[in-house]
Nucleic acid binder design. Structure first.
Length: 550
DNA sequence: ATACGGACTTAGTACTTATACT
DNA sequence: AGTATAAGTACTAAGTCCGTAT
């Protein structure tokens, strides 16, 4: 048992801070030598997440740089020199001019009203209507700047890269209980216009610049308190060992807390959604299973040749449409009929159900079970089952990977992880198709050649014609293999055009299932997980054997 | 008993880099 | 070598869940 020298939470407002130079003493190591965190003792009791936390605080976005002379904003056709604050907000809009957002009325109105708040009294007197504002010069300036950046020489690009790396090294790591851990997001979010998804009522509102005075720092009591930028101070410095965040601030648009947290590779981490009640008018209108309304389902006594089918159609998280027709048991169907009875389309379908009561019920069934766990578990079981059903030991690696992707896709479809069909999809599909056509032709030619060679060998019977025949045989085999691979690629592509595989792979599926599958079928794990993913799942790579069962 | 908000976790999109093709 | 496409990363909005205040 470890002696704990400090209470779990400790906090102080810091009107002035100790001026200790230098950053955290990186390289402090714990006395016990443990190579991997997953081999360490399980977490301490009482919700304490760490005993040592030391870091540099967030990196702040540099201050606004005014537009150069000659880049002008026009109102009603006349050039207007804006005050610094108003100009900055104008550039946020100007940058987005060719984005769909700026065509939406809600976005325009929110932007304009927030922009006016940043204007001086004189500016407010002049600038009264958005449709008289001309941001095109501002827009062009930023387009040119991006182009110039892209056209930079190799050396200049290299230099920028090195600077970014230096920043990463300086601010991107912390010391957590003697381990140097990567921070997930060490930069404060830059100011800009809020980009809510779906029909978000707050889209276009001004998201303010974060100042050190907004930021609360969390670190261990005996560590070096990070230095705020010169001339500034932190809102607060505290030592709360029951939470994992390093810094936090309140964001002004939704009034929610934003955190600086660790990278998912660090030790502190490791189907319908539940659907909470949301404040009406504050966010886009989306639902989950508890907040479904009568208008979101249709009941079919019979559909697609199956009895008792429920048709779902609603917008879920990120305003992604969920559409599905599910056959259910008779009892379920009849209950739904009761729930729909005498209700308008906008009424709650399950008016006596909340996420709390649902999770309470699931908790009673199994300790720690929540709707979310159910979704995750369902996903992992589906993957395992699909892998078992689809993989054939005698297949080549390419075919096995196709099977894996199919299994992965089944999970993504189950969880409704969608993406927009890529813009270039049709084009690249077309080139793939013509490649296949060409390959088919080649195969046919090679077959004819082989036939000829065989006849030739039969009539001549010498060793030269024999080796020629063998050569033709090998060529045909190679071409056929290439064709198989291409058509597999095409299938994979077509089936996956609207499905986002990454989300389930990264967040839902127990990586040990995939690792075990790779080991069992001799597929290199790099074909399934890229470098970042292998880092995140290092523990699974280490511990899952080929016989692992979820 | 419910509302609220803090602390994570999940997720799509925008941007960057690597790889494949011409 | 240069460009098109794919893969990977960064970013941050939008969920879930739980504990505490009302």
């Amino acid at each position: 048992m470890q002696h704990v020298p400090f209470p779990d939470r400790w906090t102080t407002r810091a009107p002035s801070h100790p001026c200790s130079p230098g950053g955290p003493h990186l390289g402090v190591s714990s006395p016990t030598v443990v190579l991997f965190w997953w081999e360490e003792e399980k977490e301490s009791p009482g919700g304490v997440k760490w005993t040592q936390l030391e870091h540099r605080g967030p990196w702040f976005v540099p201050p606004y740089e005014p537009l150069p002379e000659g880049v002008c904003f026009y109102y009603d056709g006349k050039p207007v020199k804006l005050s610094l604050a108003a100009e900055e907000v104008a550039t946020f809009y100007g940058k987005m001019l060719d984005h769909e957002y700026t065509t939406k009325e809600v976005f325009q109105n929110n932007f304009f009203s927030d922009w006016r708040k940043e204007m001086t009294a004189e500016e407010r007197k002049v600038i009264k209507h958005l449709d008289k504002c001309d941001f095109t010069e501002i827009h062009r300036y930023f387009v040119d700047r991006t182009a110039a950046r892209k056209a930079l020489s190799k050396e200049e690009k290299q230099k920028l890269k090195e600077e970014a790396e230096k920043l990463q090294q300086e601010f991107g790591y912390c010391i957590l209980d003697g381990h140097r851990e990567k921070i997930g997001n060490f930069k404060t979010e830059p100011p800009g216009l809020f980009r809510g998804r779906g029909d978000h009522p707050k889209m276009g509102m001004l998201k303010r610049r974060v100042l050190p005075e907004d930021v609360t720092i969390n670190c261990s009591r005996d560590s070096k308190v990070p230095e705020p930028p010169v001339g500034h101070r932190w809102k607060e410095v505290r030592c709360d060992r029951t939470v994992t965040w390093l810094a936090a601030w309140t964001e002004n648009v939704q009034n929610s807390i934003k955190y600086i947290m660790l990278n998912p590779s660090s030790k502190l981490k490791l189907a319908l959604r539940a659907g909470h009640e949301k404040e009406e008018g504050e966010t886009a209108d989306t639902v989950g299973c508890c907040s479904l309304r009568v208008e979101h389902i249709r009941l079919h006594p019979e559909a697609d040749g199956r009895p008792y089918v429920v048709e779902f159609d609603f917008l879920g998280k990120d305003s992604i449409r969920y559409y599905n027709r599910v056959p259910v048991e008779k009892a379920v169907y009849e209950n739904l009929q009761l729930f729909v009875e005498n209700k308008g389309p906008g009424a709650e379908l399950f008016d006596r159900l909340t996420t709390a009561s649902l999770n309470k019920h699931l908790q009673d069934l199994m300790d720690g079970l929540t709707a979310k766990v159910f979704r995750t578990c369902n996903a992992s079981l589906t993957l395992q089952g699909q892998l078992r059903a689809l993989t054939r030991a005698e297949d080549g690696v390419a075919a096995k990977i196709l099977s894996y992707n199919r299994a992965n896709r089944a999970v993504a479809v189950l969880c409704n992880h969608q993406r927009a069909t890529p813009k270039t999809f049709e084009k690249s599909m077309q080139t793939l198709r013509s490649k296949i056509e060409a390959k088919v032709k080649q195969v046919a030619e090679a077959k004819a050649e082989l036939k000829k060679a065989r006849a030739d060998h039969r009539s001549r019977g010498d060793s030269r014609s024999k080796s020629f025949l063998e050569k033709r045989g090998r060529l045909l085999e190679k071409l056929e293999e290439q064709l198989r691979r291409l058509s597999m690629q095409a299938t994979d592509k077509e089936e996956g055009k609207q499905v986002a595989l990454g989300t389930s792979k990264l967040n839902y599926l127990d990586p040990r299932i995939s690792v075990a599958w790779c080991k069992r079928f001799g597929v290199p794990v790099e074909k399934i997980y890229n470098k970042t993913q292998r880092e995140k799942f290092a523990w699974a790579l280490d511990m899952a054997g080929k016989d692992f069962e979820f």
